[in-house]
Design a protein around this nucleic acid. Structure first.
Lengths: 114, 114
DNA sequence: TCCATATTTCGACAATTATCGAATCACGGA
DNA sequence: TCCGTGATTCGATAATTGTCGAAATATGGA
């Protein structure tokens, strides 16, 4: 995982609305939520939400799929796992002290084993 | 751990120089590094570095102590652990799937067990 | 085809952030 | 006390980010 990728992911999460949004999706599970439902849950105007969704999507933290007229967003657990792994990777002088795979979800992306 | 605290911590890490700086301190261990040594290692002007150190310090991610004329900075493993714990806390529908205590270091601050 | 709905893109503006030289502060040694 | 060094604060500037209404795009149904 590259440093630039990590910075983008951290930047994406480093904002009240987006942090709340991401956590909402994490809790919603793989089924995800429609953009409209998220906007209502967070009390954010649609255009603002769209901006934040784009940020998270660009950072690779969430996935997008279409269902009829709705766009469904869901958290990418694999990306989150990779991020946490990176942050821990040099903890205690280079030894990974915790298995960097918190959840037994089928990762949608690479696992960055190296 | 409050959402605002988390955002501040993530914001602090969401910057190339600060991410590199924090990781440098994490690798340096509890002994830490003097500001000057960090500036040289990262190739950043002293005043710029001071700004970034203040950000990380304000976010509670690093600790500061004085040794003669030098100010020594070191990573706060407890804060990092708390942050990772928060990010995982609602993973998989509310169950913490990994013990949120990656390292066997004596935490310098509170452990936020709750 | 035409309309209604779901969502994004555009555009303009306010607010925050990063940068870094110069000035200032803090400490130790002579 | 006075000087030198390590580090921070100040101040000005450039760049990035967040906000949200209005307009545009995409899709399904009549």
């Amino acid at each position: 995982m590259e440093s630039e990728t990590v910075v983008r992911a951290l930047s994406a999460l480093a904002q009240e609305h987006r942090l709340a949004l991401f956590r909402l999706l994490v809790q919603a599970g793989p089924e995800g939520l429609a953009a409209g439902a998220i906007a209502e849950a967070l009390g954010v105007p649609a255009s603002s939400l769209s901006f934040h969704l784009a940020q998270l999507n660009n950072a690779g933290l969430i996935a997008q799929r279409r269902d009829g007229r709705s766009l469904i967003y869901s958290a990418d657990y694999g990306a989150m796992t990779a991020l946490l792994g990176f942050l821990m990777e040099n903890c205690c002088g280079g030894a990974v002290c915790v298995p960097a795979a918190p959840c037994n979800t089928k990762d949608t992306t690479e696992r960055t084993a190296a």
